[in-house]
């Protein structure tokens, strides 16, 4: 059974385990599969912030990990540290910090950021060393593979893959009509 590809849809719907910004009952949900070491994701980072500003409470934004660790050797640990920060209620500030300091993502840097952001940095270091969140990051990654994610960043609007330009104007326009 050779089959034609349908429009790719999220294999794992947005749920309680996801990190999200914006109201849970927002009219539109934007999901990004991203990699903290990916330069294109870095470029998308302020653009997503801009569309969040434009749509306000009508938009819920979800970030899932898609670390391409063979090409971005720091990406997996960065994702694990974001999860470690999330366990202390600070996923999003770490998410922002990692993109803003994409040029410095060695393990020591990651622990430094945890301290700067007021986290229990020793706990983050322990959890990174024990790879407590590795499986969770991999689950995100595989949910992306199953959803037809083939590079980063990949966006889904209300569960359907968005393949057009993610510059601020077209992305905001697509969200407005979703």
């Amino acid at each position: 059974m050779s089959k034609k590809r349908d429009a790719a849809v999220l294999a794992v719907p947005v749920g309680d385990d996801d990190h999200f910004q914006g109201p849970a009952d927002a009219a539109v949900t934007l999901v990004e599969y991203g990699d903290f070491e990916c330069p294109h994701c870095r470029r998308a980072y302020p653009i997503v912030k801009e569309v969040q500003r434009r749509l306000g409470p009508r938009l819920r934004f979800v970030f899932r990990h898609f670390p391409l660790k063979e090409v971005h050797v720091h990406a997996e640990h960065a994702a694990e540290v974001a999860e470690a920060a999330g366990a202390q209620g600070k996923f999003w500030v770490m998410h922002d910090r990692l993109f803003e300091r994409q040029f410095a993502l060695e393990d020591d840097n990651l622990i430094e950021y945890a301290a700067e952001l007021g986290l229990d940095a020793a706990r983050v270091a322990r959890e990174l060393a024990a790879h407590i969140y590795k499986a969770q990051v991999r689950d995100d990654f595989m949910s992306g593979v199953r959803s037809g994610v083939n590079g980063t960043p990949t966006f889904f609007i209300n569960g359907v893959r968005y393949d057009a330009s993610w510059d601020a104007d077209p992305l905001a326009a697509a969200l407005e009509v979703a």
Partner: peptide, 18 residues
Amino acid sequence: RWSYVSPIGVNPGADGIL
């Protein structure tokens, strides 16, 4: 058992293979 030809500019991903 399965085959797929992708549009030439499009990365077909891995979901179909899996």
